[in-house]
């Protein structure tokens, strides 16, 4: 095989190998011991309220967690909507949230428990104008 063709072949294989690496899990830690359920009061553009329910696997509510939420639109560059709270009651954490635009939203909920354990989960919403 000529040297140049060999180099091109190696480059192609490297590219394919890189493709297989897809999906670095950016700063996310999932935890099978913690359950996160998200609900929203409205899926229309505008102000709404996010209800995040956190329980352990047995269904016992967890109230002493720090919950932070990052809502992203699917389009690159759109400023995310952020929210956080640390006051839960019966495992339910309420926080005001705003759908700033219609379209697909990806809401990532991150939870840090008092004992340092963390968990995160992603929820998808379709928001109407």
């Amino acid at each position: 095989m000529p040297p140049l063709s060999r180099k091109l072949f190696v480059m192609f294989i490297l590219l394919l190998a890189l493709t297989a690496c897809n999906g670095r899990n950016s700063q996310q830690t999932d935890n099978a011991d913690i359950r996160i359920i998200a609900a929203v009061a409205s899926t229309q553009v505008g102000q709404t309220e996010l209800l995040i329910t956190i329980t352990d696997n047995a269904g016992n509510p967890i109230n002493d967690a720090e919950v932070s939420v990052k809502g992203d639109m699917s389009h690159a560059g759109m400023t995310p909507v952020l929210a956080e709270t640390s006051s839960g009651s019966d495992g339910v954490y309420k926080m005001p949230f705003e759908w700033t635009m219609g379209g697909d939203w990806i809401v990532n909920v991150e939870v840090v428990l008092a004992d340092g354990r963390t968990a995160s989960q992603q929820f998808n919403y379709e928001i109407a104008n």
Partner: peptide
């Protein structure tokens, strides 16, 4: 290209999609 293949799959968090489309 590197971040597109290996980075966060979410477009607003990835260098490839933000740098190119914005």
């Amino acid at each position: 290209i590197y971040d597109g293949f290996t980075g966060p799959p979410l477009a607003p968090e990835n260098l490839a999609s933000v740098a190119i489309w914005v």
